[in-house]
Design a binder for these strands. Structure first.
Length: 516
RNA sequence: GGCCCGUUCGUCUAAGGGUUAGGACACCACCCUUUCACGGUGGUGAUACGAGUUCGAAUCUCGUACGGGCUACCA
């Protein structure tokens, strides 16, 4: 038996690649890496009602951004393909037929109308969701109730039918979940799930078991919402391949929104992303925001996600992917669902931005500057070593003020463009002729300054202030407002250093009249 | 309704019978800084409830409550 860890999700990001889905992928990935195993991606694309154009590409883009690309998939190949469920159709039917022959499943010929009629009839306050179970099946049109020749005739005529599992009565099915330990179910209380649909396609229940077997999956992780259908899967394993060959299951706790399971709606409603990357629904034109486009670093996103339901037992909270691979353990994954907190997610990103090197952030700043600038066209980082150097020099001054990657230009814009409006109101009340004179003299002082360097500028500034009989502190705010336009930003003399002698004196000159 | 899973500060969590129940986010205060942040120090704040086992329970057992999931020819 090969030691593989497998992952599966729907091609629709709606169902598959929200926060919880990516975390499932992440835990799969970490577990596979730790055990030197294979991380397999099987695409579920059978449900027409949910199939989304572009979803498969989106899945790979997202996983690439997160650094979670699989070892085997539709894109990466592998020995157990095809990896698209719709391309595996033939084999499912054969297994379903075998179950019927062996007496573990049966044909059901009930029409959708008949099913609905049954449900309406049985529906009551004590039974709001009637199921097709061991009691109900006795009254329905299937190969257990119909005479054999009638069944044969139906099949020969090609009457639409499904194959349902025949749930045994009074048995206890149990299995050991990697996270929850022993979980057991009374088969009398489980319904006869459809295994093969009328169109010949398998349901998830059949497909997952058959594929896990054929792809030699040893560990299967999925969300907790699948726990209640686990008895069906265990039974199918028992009937088809033997329980011994069954993969080890791990049902991961859910990621919760403000109320219940986190949904796409929650994101729009409460103003935070729920997808890793922007998802553009080509059918509805709806755009669902992603962490990437909101200015998250992949390392921060992955770190945040990993900590939603797992910790290493110490007080460490910041983990790189390599550290996660090293320290992750299934035993320490929580049983209870975790409510997503965007504030904490922002904190992770802030921490990782502070840990990102200046060169990388400098590139990012340059990119954003180019994007924001209307005057510069065709400016590329490679073509402007001077500009890149400036950007990289700015980063140490601003990086700890950025929560999002998208903040860098916003925090640094005044280095590139003189403020259009200055907060003169903050200066005027305390403005006087002496101060004005100070700044006029400051211009000359700065022009003749020998070393254009933060500390030297500061000394010149303070000496001049003292000589003018004004406290240096009272002059710093006006100076700041002249340079950046408002009461914000890094230390003012360091700003002046990067701005350069010419630009600094120019800004003083230009704003001085506005304070009168 | 039935079945399954769960329950420690507002949130994420540590403590696998003996701790003043620890940390992080958020919040508040103070310090640093004559800007705004960062940072530093401190503070508010939790074992859902009830029984039982035990010298001793957040931790083990049972019950109750609450929360979540599932209950489709969706995944």
């Amino acid at each position: 038996m090969k030691k593989n860890v497998r992952v599966r999700f729907a091609p629709s990001p709606t169902g598959g690649l929200h926060l919880g889905g990516v975390r499932t992928v992440l835990y799969n990935y970490l577990f596979a890496r730790q055990h030197n195993g294979k991380f397999i991606l099987r695409i579920e694309d059978t449900d027409q009602s949910r199939y989304m154009p572009g979803a498969e590409e989106y899945i790979f883009e997202t996983l690439a951004w997160c650094g979670l690309l699989p070892d085997e998939s539709t894109k990466h190949g592998g020995g157990f393909g095809p990896y698209r469920q719709s391309e595996r159709k033939v084999s499912y039917k054969q297994y379903a037929e075998r179950l019927v022959t062996d007496g573990y499943a049966y044909y059901a010929f009930d029409t959708p109308q008949e099913l609905e009629a049954m449900r309406n009839e049985l529906k009551s306050d004590v039974n709001p969701n009637p199921q097709y179970d061991r009691l109900v099946r006795k009254k329905m049109k299937n190969s257990l109730t119909l005479p054999a020749d009638e069944v044969k005739a139906f099949l020969q005529e090609g009457t639409p039918h499904v194959i349902r599992i025949k749930m045994p009565e009074g048995e206890t099915v149990s299995f050991t979940d990697m996270i929850r330990g022993e979980v057991s179910f009374d088969t009398s209380l489980v319904d006869d799930k459809v295994l093969l649909k009328a169109d010949g396609m398998p349901t998830y229940h059949l497909a997952v078991v058959v594929d896990d077997y054929l792809m030699q999956i040893s560990h299967a992780f999925r969300g907790e919402e699948w726990l209640s259908s686990a008895p069906v899967h265990v039974l199918l394993w028992r009937y088809l391949f033997g329980e011994k060959a069954m993969p080890q299951w791990a049902h991961l706790p859910l990621i919760l929104g403000p109320n219940g399971k986190l949904s796409k709606r929650d994101g729009a409603k409460y103003g935070f992303p729920v997808f890793a990357m922007n998802w553009n629904d080509r059918k509805t034109g709806e755009l669902t925001a992603g962490f990437k486009e909101n200015g998250f670093l992949p390392v921060a996103f992955v770190n945040m996600l990993a900590m939603l339901g797992w910790n290493d037992g110490t007080e460490q909270e910041l983990f790189s992917m390599d550290e996660l691979i090293q320290k992750f353990s299934m035993e320490r994954v929580h049983k209870a669902g975790a409510k997503f907190d965007y504030e904490k997610a922002k904190w992770f990103n802030h921490e990782w931005i502070k840990r990102t090197d200046d060169e990388t952030l400098g590139q990012e700043l340059l990119k954003q500057y180019v994007a924001h600038s209307q005057t510069t066209e065709n400016v590329l980082p490679e073509g402007h070593p001077e500009l890149l150097k400036k950007c990289t020099a700015i980063i140490p001054l601003i990086k700890e003020r950025c929560t999002f990657l998208t903040d860098v230009y916003q925090q640094a814009s005044f280095f590139f463009i003189a403020p259009k409006e200055v907060d003169a109101a903050a200066v005027k009340p305390k403005w006087n002729a002496e101060k004005k004179k100070f700044f006029e003299e400051l211009i000359n002082e700065l022009l003749s300054l020998q070393h254009w360097q933060g500390l030297a500028i500061e000394n010149a500034f303070k000496n001049l202030a003292t000589n003018s009989g004004i406290k240096p502190g009272e002059l710093q705010l006006p100076f700041r407002i002249m340079l950046v336009g408002g009461k914000f930003g890094p230390p003012v003399f360091e700003i002046a250093e990067i701005l350069g002698r010419e630009e600094t004196t120019l800004r003083i000159e230009n704003t001085l009249p506005q304070f009168d």
